[in-house]
Simulated scan of single mutants.
Amino acid sequence: MSRIQCERCLRPQTHCLCPLIPSLDSRTRVVLLQHPSEVGHALNTAKLAALGLRNAELRVGEVFEDLPALIATPGYRVALLFPGEDAQVLQAYSAQAQALPWLLVVPDGTWRKARKLLHVNPLLAALPRVTLSEVLPSRYRLRKAPGEGALSTLEAVVQALNVLEAPVLFDELLKPFEALIEGQIAAMGREVFERNHLR
């Protein structure tokens, strides 16, 4: 018998995160493109980002045929939030005279799956890229990071918004994420967590 799920956060009702999910306004528009393999994942951070930001949208798929319409939102500069050699470092709006707000397109999946999304969506790969000048350490203690500076999708979005919209902070978005991680650690047992993840 399957457990009853919350229709909003997709967590079991006994572990619903909705009371912790904020509803935050942002100048920046965030479009999250999620690989289908992430949808059923217990740590679905893109879903938390979409639920916590009023100016965000989550799409699931591999090929996004409606991408031209998604990124054609007037009044925004469009960029892919993804590292790359030519990626422009994000700066606070206050440091840019009369700059249009960003529409950040954020691929969500493992690094391999995120790169696949770029490969099968040439328009996505062709977008100008933006990145963070300084990456704060990840709080994602349950997945091994593929390299230095790797973040979950939610953490990348929070850090980008904290830079762009300073002095406004979006750390409240991390509350359900931290509760989710603590819940997973409790479920597996502290001893198992320390043996398998604290290395």
Rank of each mutant, 00 (worst) to 15 (best):
R3K: 15
R8K: 15
L10T: 04
L17A: 06
L20A: 13
D25C: 06
S26W: 10
R27E: 11
L32G: 04
L32F: 04
P36V: 00
G40S: 09
G40N: 13
H41L: 12
A42R: 14
L43W: 01
N44W: 03
T45L: 08
K47I: 05
L48W: 06
E57T: 04
L58N: 00
G61S: 08
D66N: 11
A69E: 12
T73M: 14
P74T: 14
P74R: 09
Y76C: 01
R77W: 01
V78E: 01
A79H: 14
F82W: 12
E85S: 13
D86W: 02
Q88I: 13
A92Y: 14
A95W: 07
Q98P: 06
Q98F: 12
L103G: 01
V106L: 01
V106Y: 00
D108G: 00
G109A: 13
A114G: 11
L118H: 06
L118A: 08
V120H: 11
V120M: 03
P122I: 04
A125D: 14
V130T: 11
T131G: 14
T131Y: 10
R139K: 05
Y140C: 00
P146T: 09
P146S: 06
G147T: 08
G149R: 04
L151P: 01
L154Y: 04
L161V: 10
L164C: 09
E165R: 07
A166D: 05
L173T: 06
E178I: 02
L180F: 12
I181D: 13
E182L: 13
M188E: 12
G189H: 05
R190D: 13
